[in-house]
Structure formats: structure tokens, C-alpha cells
Design a protein around this nucleic acid. Structure first.
Lengths: 187, 187
DNA sequence: GTCTATAATAGGATAGAC
DNA sequence: GTCTATCCTATTATAGAC
């Protein structure tokens, strides 16, 4: 029984990169195999339900990422502004300054949208609610906190789409700076 | 020689709906055939280069839509605010108040991104530049006009992604109202 | 746990009748 | 201009050796 060449977590990370690049319908088993360095059969060993289960694992990973790198920093040490900046730094790094697409955004397209509606809603909601709590704590009204929280997520997703379409990551970085300045501003 | 059952424009409109719903990789010939009501061979009669040419026709249609319904209203009669509102009304109608995905945004995903990079960049740029000219005319600085123009497009795209993920169109309508209030505000 | 080989199906595309 | 029938390839998925 040979030892696994890479850890299960590492497999999911690499699958994530493929879905991020190609979306659900565009990610063929051949690409998933290439991207992980594993044969198709090895993938089926990890994920008996095939591609559908692979994408599910990727979405669970994305959810965990949001909890750990987007939401958790918002409740840690420092001022609200410092905490917000920690989140934005993690986001900037994840998306390579606007050069990478968003795996969540890409999985809203095509067959994946309905297959994973629950997971997508849950992950987006988790992120928004974390931001909303920070806004509340910083003294924003409930309504403003909620709206600005939604706007943060939607502007990040939209910037990644636009940067993909323009083939130019410039506006992503600007949007991140804009969020830093505007999210906690007085009403 | 039987008369065509539907016009060429109507065929492109229906193809557009399929690509809007499924993205490029998810839009199979079978779905494209179902969506148009035409057999595969009829589609190949209209588009000898197959699916690639169909998506190209759809992107040309989208570009025309942007010119006619998003950019043209910005230079018509009325105050800058009234003109902006005309554009937003057309956008609201096109996306069914946030319930429909954006065909441009969906074609930034997967194989289509590189196949149609030029068309995507051109269409997004046309839209942004139209908004930028309106901002300039309304007295905004060049820098602010450009940034707010980008923000309009990116917030619309992002709202559609978020509404898709949350399965709730609420924030799309809110974003449209927000743009009305903020795009022309003094700096 | 990974591989090669292969089955079964769906995809894109074409031929030729009408 | 549209159809039915068909081809070829890619895709998902499985079997079985090591």
C-alpha cells in the first residue's frame, strides 16, 4: 500500500485552482488530473462521486477559507480598521492582486449554480455577516452595516470579473483601497 | 427553399439566453438547439464555425446592446442624472431586476475568457468610457470620472454574481439606486 | 494508493435527403 | 432552411493489475 504522494488537503487545493481557472463545466477530468498530478482513478479513490464531489470539497475548502481568513480576522485584536485591513490583505493575496478569478464567482455560472446553491449562499452569507458584525461594532446602523457588508463582497467579486474581462488587474487593487476608506466611514 | 422560421436576430437573441444561463462551456449544442428551437444542422447553417461563432455573434449583440441601451442614453436629452437613470432602467430591465445573470460576466469564465478576451475588453471599455464621458460632462475630475465609471460596471457585475450566489435579487436593485445617488455626487 | 485499459455516454461537427 | 442519420472525439466513469 504505497503512501499517498500528496496529502488530501493538497489535492483539494490543487482542484480548487483548476475550478478557479476553468469553472465547473470547463473543468474536465483530464484537467483535474493534470492539475493534481494524479491519475483519474486516484481522483476517484479520493472522491467516489467524481467531479461533483470534487467541487463540493472545493466549496467546503472555500467556506473554511472565508471563516479563517476573511471572517476570523475581523474579530481579532486591533481597531476595526486594522481588522478590516487584515481581511483585505488576505483577499489581495488569495486573488493575486486581481489576477486570479474567484472560485466562488466561477461556480455561480452554469450547472454548478443549482448544484451548489446552498453552499454558495452559505459561504457568501458567512462572509457578509462577518463584515456586518464589524460594522455594527464600529457604530454603524444595522441597515448601513448590512448594506456596506454586501457592497464589500459584491465589489470584490465584480472587480474580479471586470479585471478578467479587461485583462488588467488595476481596478481590483483600487477597490480594495476604496473599501478600506469607505466601509467604516461615518454615515 | 422554405422560409426561415425565425429571423437571424431572433436566433442570436435565443442563443444569448442560453449562454447567459449556462456560460460557454456549459452551453452544449443540444441546449443551444433546444433554446433556439432549431436543429443542430440549422445552427450550422447560420454559424458554419459552430459554437465558437455562435458565442461571437452573441458577444457582438451584447456590444451593440451596450452601445445602444447603455452608452447612447448617456448622451441624449435631459440632465446627466436623467440620462444616467435611463441607462440604469435599461440595465434593470435586461437583468430582470437581478434575477438574470450577465452574459458578459459568464463569458469571462472558462474557455471563453481567452477565446473572447478582445471582445470582452472592448465591450467593457465601451461601457466604462461612456460613463466616464458623462462624469466629465457633469464636472467630475478625469480621475474621479474614470474610477466611478469603473465602479458602476463592476458593482453591476458583482451584484449579479452575489444575487446568483444568494439566490436573492435584493441587492441588485439597491446597487442600482446607490449608483443613481453616488455617481454624480460632488467630489 | 496509483496505474493502464476500457466501457459508456455526451459533445461537437458533417453528409445528404427534402 | 431544416431535418435525420451518422461520425469522431472527448468526457465521465469503472475494472482490475500492481
Amino acid at each position: 500500500m504505497p503512501a499517498p504522494l500528496i496529502s488530501h488537503d493538497e489535492v483539494v487545493d490543487r482542484l480548487c485552482q483548476v475550478f478557479q481557472r476553468l469553472g465547473y463545466d470547463g473543468a474536465s477530468l483530464a484537467e483535474l488530473s493534470r492539475g493534481t498530478g494524479l491519475g483519474k482513478s486516484s481522483l476517484y479513490h479520493y472522491f467516489p462521486n467524481g467531479k461533483e464531489e470534487m467541487a463540493l470539497a472545493v466549496l467546503r475548502r472555500a467556506h473554511t477559507w472565508v471563516e479563517q481568513h476573511a471572517v476570523a480576522p475581523l474579530t481579532g485584536e486591533g481597531s476595526p480598521k486594522e481588522r478590516l485591513e487584515r481581511m483585505l490583505k488576505a483577499v489581495d493575496s488569495l486573488y493575486a492582486g486581481g489576477k486570479n478569478p474567484c472560485v466562488l464567482g466561477n461556480l455561480v455560472v452554469g450547472a454548478a449554480r443549482h448544484l451548489y446553491q446552498r453552499q454558495l449562499r452559505s459561504t457568501f452569507s458567512t462572509w457578509i455577516e462577518g463584515l456586518e458584525r464589524l460594522g455594527l461594532e464600529a457604530g454603524l446602523s444595522r441597515r448601513t452595516a448590512r448594506e456596506r457588508a454586501e457592497d464589500v463582497v459584491l465589489q470584490i467579486e465584480g472587480a474580479l470579473i471586470l479585471c478578467g474581462g479587461l485583462d488588467d488587474p488595476t481596478s481590483f487593487r483600487r477597490v480594495l483601497r476604496k473599501i478600506t476608506k469607505e466601509f467604516l466611514a461615518s454615515e
